[in-house]
Structure formats: C-alpha cells, structure tokens
Design a protein around this nucleic acid. Structure first.
Length: 572
RNA sequence: GGACCCGUAGCCUAGUGGAUAAGGCACCUGCCUUCUAAGCAGGGGAUCGAGGGUUCGAAUCCCUUCGGGUCCGCCA
C-alpha cells in the first residue's frame, strides 16, 4: 500500500502545479472510513485557501485533471475528498503472493537499535500476582514488537531480593517456621515463602515489636551476618524456584536476570560524583538528598541517614551497568504508573550526573490493576495470585472444550486449554491502552467470547481447518481476478496493512494497536467465512484464490498472535 | 498544598484535528442435515463529564471546572 500512496502523491503534486510538494501530499493522504468509499483518500481542505475555491470544487477538478498512476483504477470526488480506488486484482495478487512467500516473516523486518526491556521485577518475599500478569504481558509483547521491527532486544528481569520486605518474611519464618520447607509443607516454594509474609503482617498487627526486629535483621544482612545470609539464600532460592515455574507456564522469558543485592552497594562512585557536582547534599537529619527542586521535581533521598542504601541507590548503579556493559542504545522499564515520579527523578539524576545516554531511558508506564475491593495489597493477602488465576481460567477452558469434544484425551485437553486460557488472560491485559487503569472482575474480565484472545485463536483454527480439508489443492499458478466480493476486498485490505500496523505498534510501544487490528481482521474473516464457501466454491480458480486468501489470513493471525506471546492453535 | 494519569451507550473499550463517533459485553430477533455456533446477520441504546475558547472543521488542541485514580526525602 505504501508504494501506491507515493505514486498517488506524485501524481497529485503534479496536478497541483507546485502548490504542495509530493511529501506534503503524502502526509495528507488517509484511508476512507469504509472500503466502499475507496482505498486511499485525499482531503482537499488545506487547498481551499491556496486556490480560493471550496474543497469540494477542488476535489472535483482534481478528479478530472489528475493522471492516474498504474495501480489506480479510478479517482472519485466525494464532497471535499478525492477517493482513489486501487485495482483490486493487482492489490490481491501483490498482498497474497507476498504473504504466501514470506509466511512467518510477513510483517517483520528492518534494522534498528539495541534495546533492553526490563519487566516483571518481582519482590522476593511473595508470589507473583495479577499485576505481574499485566506487566509480563506488556513486557513480552513490546519486546516481540521491537524485535519484529529489526531491533536487537535484551529482555531483563530485576529481582528485588533485598530490603525490609524480604526481612519481614525472613523474620516470620525464623520465629514461626520451625525449620519447615516447601517439601515438608507440600507447597509451591514461592507460595510457601509468601505465607510467612502474610503471617508477619498479621503478627506485626498484634505486636509492634516485630517491626524493630525486622529492621535489626536488615542491619545484620547489610553486615553480612553469616546466619542471616544463609537464611536469606535459602528463602530466596525457594522463591526464585517458584517464580521460574510461573514464568515458564505464562511464557515470560528473560535473557538476563539482575539482582538488586548485587548492585545496591555498587553506587559508591556515583554517590561521590554527585556530591562533587553538588547534585547530592545532606539534609539536617543526615540523609543524602538529590536536589531536584529547581528542575520542578521533589528532592529524592539517595542514602538513608545511617548511610544504608535504598532502591534508587541500586537503580543508579544498575542503569550505568546496563548501558555500559551491554552497549545499549535504549533502555525501557515496564513499571506501573504509581512509579511515574520515581522514574522522572531517576532519569533526571542520571542526566545531571552527565551520562549522555540518560536521554535514552524510557519508562513504559501502565495503569494500575484493581480488584473490586480496591488496590492490590499483598501484605494483607488481598491479592489475586497469578498461579490461582491461571488455574481458574484453565478450568473454564477445559470445560468449554469438553462441551464441544467429549471424547478428547486428557493430555490434549490440557494442552489446548492452556493455550486458550493464557490467550484469554494475555489478550485481556493487552487490548486496552497501557496507561488506563484496569478494574479486574474475576468472573467478567476473562471471557472467551467477543473481543478476546480465544476469538482470534478460534478464527485461526477455523482457517486451518479449511486448509486441512482442502490440502490436496495446490496453490500454484493462482489467479486473483475472481476475488471480487466486498468481503474479500476488505480482508485483503486488512492483510496488506499488517506490516505497517506492526511498525506503528512497535514505534508507540503499544500492543493494543495490534490487538485492535487482529480483532478487525478476525471479524472480516468470519464474515467472509459465513458468506462465501471456500471448498465448495463455484469453480476451481475461485476455490484456489479463496484458499490462498484463507492461507494468507492464517499467516497474519498467527504472526500477530505470536507477537502478543499468544499461541495459535490448530484446533480449539 | 503540588504533580501526573483517566473520564466516549447500563458495563468494558477503539478512535487523539477531517466524511454518518467504531466495536465488544448485557438485552431483543433470526441462522447449526452445507468448510468448527468460542461464530454470523439484524435491532434498540451516546447532547464523547460540564462550561468557555482556537479552527473552514474539535471526542481529539488551549483555558476553567467537576468526578475517579496515583504519587509527592531516608518502602520497593
């Protein structure tokens, strides 16, 4: 579609006798609201003052004067717009042949940058929860989109494995754990550790002494007390083992893991540098503050009064390490919107420290996930656990499959239900623009009907089903002159847009753009499916043309789903 | 007190300067002896939170205001 736009822009610029340059015309070109109105539209509003005529008159005159380039069949004025109709056959041939040739590569390409996407970022005191499902869905989809547009992507996870939150779980285990273990308790190891975090908060409510004890534990940890370190290693080992199971199941993958504990004391030189430059100075209580007020941001503590480190101390050192060790062009943090200010402060401090890559830091902020009862709060146990959600939706998917296919064997049932349930969860997390808050209602939010992951998966399975049943037909020497219904034209138009949609979603770091496109494409396919028989088409040429269209649609749906980290399955 | 985000039909969303505001859920009517009904076709339902401004043209940009959310020095 791109070349056609350029050809049209060239022809229009010629007719306009230099009033607008080709590049200016190209920018004005848009798509009409519905396919019956044409393929490419030129709005004439901007020309009205130049020609001192109404936009409608200009459109009419242009329709007669413009010399149509080869792929354009006709140009029709429609009020203030001039609409171009492309030759159906050449578009169909071009689009479908390209997809059948490129297959899983269709929509991908280009050359780009080296980008690190940091996402998930669990705390090692409690299991992954609903918020991580949104975070991971976005992190994976954005990574895939960036990769598809030619970037070298490094997916990173940061385990927040030190700090007071970790000491709280440790304290509860020390006091009440009686040397138990996940094996003895027959619990998934991260849930086992998390149960002590909940226990701590319950007991601390009754006995305020516990908080002091937790801070004492933190001090001992910072002094590298042998017994505390041993306990810390044991509990972190358990919880990471549990995280890895959950990540494997959900499909979250990481190329590199960072641990806060390995960076939190590496910031010494940066602290000194900041003091020298006058960016950091002590306040009257003795804490070291980054002075940011003159830049319109609140000051930020970088060292506690007792000299111990906090999270940003670690992040300063880690970010420097990221850019220098991995030679990044860009770093992206996928983190919820409650930390918007934190990242502004972090990036400003790095800029003030004089790192020229500070401008290549980007916070991909996404809205909070709320339960009907309010904000997720794991310390009160009021949280929707990630494993529990997956189990719940898995069960729903299994029962839907059983309704349709009673005799299915158990292994196959579980495999399909896994793909469908994860497709439902991920698509739900991705189809809304990231900055919007999400109000998660367990029963209503995850559905298999309407604008959902399973709807796209179902459409793909339908397409594959046709192809399976018609497998004896060769897709060589295709003729496209028979694909002339409006349903076929609409579908082909959509398929041709896929590469530019991928590029747009990647540029904007917005997977929801791709979700919306897949919904539209699936709708277009299903409409076509109901209206036009493929295998029973009136003649062999039409059948071959339609089979090619079905095959091309299947490729686009599969490629799109995979970018969203959702499995395309052959049967539902 | 300050900063940022959100507000589109009963509910969830897309559209962020251009043609009649586009879908899904829920509700109503049809369609399974024809490629999978997790589907399709059709129907009702919106003064795009409110008020002002800019523009030939505003859901979209600017100002004011209301409602919801988040954050604001030693949590992560």
């Amino acid at each position: 579609m791109l070349e056609q736009r350029e050809e049209i822009a060239k022809a229009l610029a010629l007719s306009l006798k230099g009033k607008l340059k080709q590049s200016q015309v190209l920018e004005l070109l848009e798509s009409p609201p519905s396919p019956e109105m044409g393929d490419i539209a030129f709005p004439c509003f901007k020309l009205a003052p130049l020609f001192k005529k109404s936009p409608a008159e200009i459109a009419k005159e242009l329709s007669q004067s413009v010399k149509l380039p080869a792929p354009v069949e006709k140009a029709e004025p429609a009020g203030p717009y001039l609409n171009f109709f492309l030759q159906r056959e050449s578009i169909a041939k071009q689009t479908i042949s390209l997809i059948l040739k490129e297959k899983e590569k269709y929509g991908k390409g280009g050359r780009g940058k080296k980008i690190m996407v940091e996402y998930s970022g669990p705390n090692t005191n409690k299991p992954l929860h609903l918020g991580h499902l949104r975070n991971d869905s976005i992190g994976m989809a954005v990574s895939n989109l960036l990769e598809a547009t030619g970037n070298k992507v490094i997916k990173a996870n940061i385990a927040n494995d030190r700090g007071i939150h970790v000491c709280k779980s440790m304290l509860a285990y020390k006091l009440f754990g009686k040397n138990s273990s996940p094996e003895k308790a027959k619990q998934k190891p991260d849930h086992f550790v998390g149960s002590y975090y909940v226990l701590y908060n319950k007991k601390a409510g009754e006995n305020p002494e516990l908080e002091k004890q937790a801070y004492e534990l933190l001090k001992l940890w910072e002094k590298k007390d042998r017994r505390v370190i041993a306990l810390w290693k044991k509990m972190n080992g358990w919880i990471l083992q549990g995280f890895k199971q959950t990540y494997r199941r959900f499909g979250s993958r990481f190329d590199v893991w960072f641990f806060e504990s390995k960076f939190y004391d590496k910031a010494g030189p940066l602290i000194e540098q900041g003091k020298k430059k006058g960016i950091f100075s002590k306040n009257k209580d003795g804490a070291l503050l980054a002075r940011l007020e003159k830049y319109g941001l609140p000051d930020k503590t970088v060292l506690r009064a007792d000299g111990s480190r906090i999270y940003i101390t670690n992040d300063l050192a880690l970010t420097k390490h990221k850019f220098e060790h991995f030679r990044l062009d860009q770093a992206i943090w996928v983190v919820a919107s409650e930390q918007n200010l934190y990242f502004k402060q972090l990036f400003k401090i790095l800029e003030l420290l004089g790192f020229k890559w500070a401008g290549n830091c980007r916070h991909l902020s996404y809205g909070m996930v709320f339960l009907p009862s309010g904000k997720l709060k794991s310390r009160e146990g009021r949280v929707v656990d990630a494993d529990a959600i997956m189990d719940e939706v898995q069960k729903l998917a299994e029962s839907e499959i059983r309704k349709r296919e009673g005799g299915i064997n158990k292994k196959e049932l579980q495999r399909r239900a896994s793909a469908i349930s994860l497709g439902a969860i991920k698509f739900y997390m991705l189809k809304t623009a990231a900055q919007k808050d999400l109000h998660f209602k367990p029963k209503e939010s995850i559905s298999f009907e309407g604008e959902t992951g399973p709807y796209i998966q179902y459409t793909y399975a339908r397409a594959k089903n046709i192809l399976r049943k018609a497998k004896e037909v060769s897709l060589q020497k295709l003729l496209f002159n028979q694909l002339k219904t409006s349903e076929e034209k609409r579908l082909i138009n959509l398929l041709s847009q896929f590469p530019s949609i991928v590029q747009k979603a990647s540029d904007a770091l917005s997977p929801h753009i791709l979700c919306q496109f897949l919904i539209e494409t699936a709708e277009a396919f299903n409409t076509f499916y109901h209206k036009h028989p493929v295998i029973q088409a009136e003649n062999i040429e039409l059948k071959k043309g339609r089979l090619a269209l079905v095959q091309a649609t299947a490729h686009v749906l599969k490629n799109g789903l995979q970018l969203l980290n959702i499995e395309a399955i052959e049967r539902m």
